[in-house]
Write a protein that binds this DNA or RNA. Structure first.
Length: 274
DNA sequence: AACTCTTACAACCGCAATGTC
DNA sequence: TGACATTGCGGTTGTAAGAGT
């Protein structure tokens, strides 16, 4: 017997998501909220397993995601949090609004690891690296004192910045207020300008992850315009909470078919924030 | 222009944790 | 309380795009 696999893999699609699939997933979640992931693909008309849908949504389609490279400040935060938490990427991500664990993990592996090694710091232990040729346990040529002071300086600077929003829930700092966050790397779109042309210019047969990216470039919702109630608060976490808790209501708001170009078959033909 | 190598990141896999009955 | 379902997490892989030759 044993437990059922998370999804029946026979006949299910794998690999990069197409614009058409993204459109179906977004359309369904906005209309119905994040219901049971296992059932979602069938209900949304997707040939994907629920896990794949959840991953696509949480890592790529969620409207509250920030895009673009991590800022210096975010990077330093990741380093410090990693020193404290290790590879607990989701925990680390929870301290960086709009960033996903996957994104941080990737950034760590591709950028930060190298950067630390270059600085003579072991990315695993966050301690000075021992040189290969000095296996007799002599210290790295980089003086530990200066290294530690560098780390300490960075930590202190970061603490002074992070404490504001990590420790004080009443703080009115938002992602946009935080100098360190690279919102300037994210194309900010006025809410009234957001229009999602879901109908792809290219035939679906040519759709690929590139088409999907194009679609998402136009989908960009980085500077989310929250319903009037939410806008009274600048607390990003609160907004995220509202997003999660009241997703259905919010989805209803968005899915008013007079505002969304919803075709008869339920798919979105356009998406306009009014 | 064609090929190879490197980089970046989206997506997958398997296991763990948690929830439900 | 145990069995199973569902969700979350971290490690790993696949691949497109860019750089170098």
């Amino acid at each position: 017997m044993g437990r059922q696999p998370c999804c029946d893999k026979v006949g299910l699609k794998k690999g990069p998501w197409t614009a058409e699939e993204d459109q179906k997933l977004i359309s369904f979640i906005l209309a119905n909220g994040q219901c049971c992931w296992r059932a979602l693909p069938k209900l949304a008309g997707l040939l994907r397993c629920g896990k794949s849908c959840r991953l696509r949504w949480t890592n790529y389609l969620r409207p509250d995601l920030k895009r673009g490279l991590l800022s210096e400040y975010e990077e330093q935060m990741v380093i410090d949090l990693h020193a404290q938490l290790g590879n607990r990427w989701s925990k680390i991500a929870s301290h960086l609004p709009g960033r996903t664990d996957n994104e941080i993990k990737n950034h760590w592996n591709t950028h930060i690891k190298k950067k630390l090694k270059k600085m003579g710091i072991d990315p695993l232990t966050h301690k000075p690296l021992q040189q290969q040729s000095q296996q007799d346990k002599t210290p790295n040529e980089l003086p530990e004192a200066s290294l530690q002071s560098t780390i300490t300086e960075a930590k202190e600077e970061e603490k002074s910045m992070t404490s504001a929003f990590l420790d004080d829930p009443t703080t009115t700092m938002t992602v946009d207020d935080t100098d360190g966050f690279c919102t300037d790397e994210v194309p900010l779109i006025e809410p009234h300008e957001i229009l999602v042309p879901v109908a792809c210019a290219e035939p679906s047969s040519t759709s690929s992850s590139c088409d999907s990216s194009k679609f998402l470039e136009e989908l960009q919702l980085p500077d989310f315009d929250w319903p009037a109630d939410c806008n009274t608060s600048n607390d990003n976490d609160e907004k995220l909470g509202l997003w999660n808790d009241d997703f259905n209501d919010w989805g209803d708001l968005l899915c008013d078919r007079t505002k969304l170009g919803v075709d008869d078959d339920g798919s979105l033909s356009s998406w306009t924030f009014i």
